[in-house]
Design a protein around this nucleic acid. Structure first.
Lengths: 211, 211
DNA sequence: CTGTGCGCTGAGCGGCTGCTTAGCCATCCA
DNA sequence: TGGATGGCTAAGCAGCCGCTCAGCGCACAG
C-alpha cells in the first residue's frame, strides 16, 4: 500500500468535507492519474455521494488545481525555509536538497500529483502553477550561482546543473516507497552529498582526501 | 507539439497495421496516460476503425505491454552496448549515462510510457517488465562497483548512488522537450560529467584547479 | 469462375462517465 | 413556532467506454 499515510499539507482546509474530498482525490489521482479517476471514486473515499463533490468544487479539474496549488506552495516554502540562515553556499545547497528530497519522499502521494498531473490542468490554472514552479528553480539556481561566485563551487553549466539537481529530487516521488529500504531522512542525507559533488564542492563527501 | 517525431524502436513490427496501432498508442498513452486513452483514439491515430485494434491485440493492456516490453528491451540494449569496450570505469560510466540519457531524450514519448505507465500493466506482465528493469540497474551498479574497486571512484553508498544516477537519467523523459534549449547530445554530455562527479571521479569536469 | 481466408468495418451491447436537479433534513434566527 | 439556510442524497441525463460480432471486399488457390 502506498497511500497509507495522511497528508498534513491539507490540514487547514475547511470545511471538513472539503478536506476529506481533497485527501481522497490526492490518493486517487496518485494511484490512477487524473483522467482515469472518477468523481464517484473521490466521493466514495470521502464517504459521500458523488453529488456532494460539486457543492465544494466546481469541477474535478478545480479539485486537481487546489491540490496542485497547495502542494506547490508547500514545496516552495520548504525550499525557502531550508536556504535561510545557512553559513555558506555549501550548507545552503545541502539544506535545500535535504529538505526538498524529504518533502518528496514523505509526501510522495501528493508529490506524484504535483509533479505528474500538470498536463491535466486547464490552461489558466496551468499558467498559475508554472509561476510557482519557476520560483523553486530560481531558488536553487541562485544557491549555485552564489556558491560559484564565492569560489565554493566549480560548475561549468549552472543552469543545467540546477535543473539536474531539481530533477534528481523530483524523481524521488516516482520511486519512493515507505516499504523501501531507506527512510526519507537517509535519502535526503545521501542526495545532499550527491548535490555537493555535482556542484564541484571540494570537500563533498570524499571519504579520503587523496587515496 | 511533443509528439512530432516518430519512434524507430518499433520499425520491425509487422504487419504494418499493427505497427501503426503501436505508434498511435505510444503517442496517446504519453499524452493522456493509459487509463484515459480510448481504443477509439488509438485506432483513429492509426487510421482504422476501433474494431481493427482487436485483430492485432487482445486488449488495450496487451498493447501497453508490447510498448513497455520493446521499450525496456531497447533501453537495456542501449546501456549494454554503451558499457562495452570502454578503457576504464570512468569511460564506462560516461558512455552509459550519455547513451541512456540520449535515449530518454530522443525517445521521450516512448520513454514516458515506459517509465510512467508501469502501474497500468497487469500483474503477470508487470512481473516480466520488472525483470528487465532490474537488469539495467545491475549494469549501472556493476560499473560503479568496478570503479570503486579499481580506485577510480570514491562512493560511500554504491547502491544508493547507482539508483540516483539511474533516476537522474529517467527523469529526462519527464521534462525533455524538442523545443527546449538543449539537444539530447548536449544533455547527455552534461549528465555524463555530473555522473562522474557523483561517483567521486577525481578529474571529473573540473574546469579549473583553483579558481 | 468458384471458394476460402484474412483484414477490416458498422452497428451495437452493457456499463460507466462528469455533472445536474429536485428535494430531504438538521440547524439556526426571529 | 415558523421559515429560511446550507450540506447532503437519490435519481438521472446525454454521452462515451472496452470490446464483440455479423458481414463485406479483396487477394489468391483450384
Amino acid at each position: 500500500m502506498t497511500t497509507g499515510e495522511i497528508d498534513e499539507s491539507f490540514g487547514g482546509v475547511t470545511p471538513d468535507a472539503a478536506r476529506r474530498l481533497l485527501l481522497g482525490a490526492v490518493q486517487a489521482f496518485a494511484q490512477r492519474g487524473f483522467h482515469a479517476t472518477t468523481t464517484r471514486d473521490i466521493a466514495g473515499r470521502a464517504g459521500m455521494s458523488p453529488a456532494a463533490l460539486y457543492i465544494h468544487y466546481k469541477t474535478k479539474e478545480e479539485l486537481l488545481f487546489h491540490i496542485s496549488r497547495v502542494g506547490h506552495e508547500r514545496s516552495v516554502a520548504v525550499l525557502e525555509e531550508a536556504v535561510e540562515g545557512a553559513a555558506d553556499s555549501a550548507e545552503r545547497l545541502a539544506h535545500a536538497v535535504r529538505a526538498f528530497v524529504r518533502w518528496h519522499a514523505e509526501h510522495h502521494t501528493t508529490a506524484r500529483v504535483v509533479q505528474y498531473e500538470l498536463a491535466a490542468l486547464g490552461e489558466e490554472h496551468h499558467a498559475q502553477i508554472v509561476v510557482l514552479r519557476r520560483r523553486s528553480e530560481e531558488i536553487l539556481r541562485q544557491v549555485l550561482e552564489d556558491g560559484v561566485r564565492a569560489g565554493e563551487f566549480d560548475i561549468p553549466d549552472i543552469r543545467g546543473t540546477a535543473l539536474a539537481v531539481m530533477s534528481l529530487c523530483i524523481d524521488v516521488a516516482r520511486w519512493f516507497s515507505p516499504q523501501g529500504r531507506r527512510t526519507p531522512d537517509e535519502i535526503g542525507e545521501l542526495y545532499a552529498d550527491l548535490a555537493l559533488r555535482m556542484a564541484g564542492h571540494r570537500a563533498a563527501g570524499v571519504t579520503s582526501s587523496s587515496g
